[in-house]
């Protein structure tokens, strides 16, 4: 299945990945090849088959509503690329 550069750009935008023109070209080709392989699933008869999204045991026990100590603010902010000792700081958000 062919995938064009406009589609690659759209998907990259959704995934917040900046791609160079060369990468767009490369991914268009590689994703096209992989999607071509994945097309084989279209031939499998899955009518009346339920999807398997969870492979484990259902009905697990839930957490009781009891507080437990988390991280200190210093710990929470320790790995942040930018913070002001109170909050994480990012480039200004425009709504």
């Amino acid at each position: 299945m062919a995938i064009d550069r406009a589609q690659v750009r759209h998907v990259a935008r959704l995934a917040r990945l900046r791609l160079s023109a060369a990468e767009e070209e490369l991914y268009a080709a590689q994703l096209g090849a992989v999607l071509g392989y994945l097309e084989r699933l279209a031939a499998v008869d899955v009518s009346s088959v339920e999807p398997l999204s969870f492979a484990g045991d259902e009905g697990s026990s839930l957490r009781e509503d009891v507080a437990r100590s988390g991280l200190s603010r210093e710990q929470a902010l320790a790995a942040a690329p930018q913070h002001d000792a109170q909050a994480f700081v990012v480039p200004r958000i425009i709504e």
Partner: peptide, 11 residues
């Protein structure tokens, strides 16, 4: 998020 001039703060 609190939006300020220099950037936005996230709590």
């Amino acid at each position: 998020s609190v939006h300020a001039e220099g950037g936005s703060e996230v709590d």
